[in-house]
Computed example of a mutant assay.
Amino acid sequence: MLKTSWSMWIIGACSVLALAVAIERAIALWGFAANARAVADAVVRALLRGDLDEARAECERSPSPAADVFLAGLAAAVRRGPRGAAPDEDKIDAAVERERQQVNLRLRRNVWVLGTVGAIAPFIGLFGTVVGIMQAFRHMAATGQGGFTVVASGISEALVATAGGIAVAIEAVVIYNFLNVHVQKLALQLKLVVEEFLETLHDALPTATAARPAAEPRPAREA
Rank of each mutant, 00 (worst) to 15 (best):
S15T: 10
I133V: 14
R212W: 00
A220W: 06
V44T: 06
E195W: 01
A42G: 00
I23C: 07
I23E: 03
I133Q: 06
A85I: 02
S5G: 14
A18C: 14
A142I: 08
V111I: 14
V160A: 05
G146D: 09
R37G: 14
E60Q: 12
I11C: 06
E196C: 03
V160R: 03
G154M: 12
A204R: 01
T4V: 01
V181F: 07
A18T: 12
Y176H: 15
A77R: 14
D51I: 14
A172Y: 11
N110I: 09
A36T: 05
A141P: 01
Q135L: 10
A208C: 03
L205G: 01
P213F: 02
L74W: 13
G118Y: 05
A215Y: 04
H182G: 00
A142V: 06
L159M: 14
A187E: 15
G12L: 11
A55M: 02
L19Q: 02
V111M: 08
A26E: 02
S15L: 12
A204F: 05
A72N: 05
A172P: 11
I175T: 05
L126M: 07
R138G: 14
A40M: 07
Q101S: 09
L74G: 06
A167M: 15
A76C: 13
E196T: 10
I155Q: 10
L48P: 03
W9G: 15
T200Y: 05
A94K: 12
N104R: 10
G81D: 04
L47F: 09
A169Y: 15
T129N: 01
V44F: 03
E60H: 06
Q184I: 11
D93W: 03
K3F: 10
A95S: 15
G12I: 07
I11N: 01
A66G: 00
G31E: 11
A161L: 10
I120C: 02
G154N: 13
E195Q: 10
G144F: 11
A204S: 13
A142Q: 11
A86E: 09
R212F: 00
I92A: 12
D93I: 08
E195A: 13
V174C: 04
L107K: 01
R80G: 08
A72K: 01
A208W: 04
T207Y: 12
R56P: 00
R221F: 01
H182F: 01
L205Y: 07
E58G: 00
P82Q: 02
A85S: 08
Q101G: 09
T149D: 15
P206H: 08
V173Q: 02
R45V: 03
V16G: 04
L190K: 01
L71S: 00
E216P: 07
A13F: 11
G165H: 07
D88G: 06
I133C: 10
E24R: 08
L192C: 10
R100L: 08
A152F: 05
I11D: 03
G81H: 03
L201A: 04
T116D: 02
E54M: 14
L71E: 00
A94R: 15
S15D: 06
I175Q: 01
S7E: 11
V173D: 02
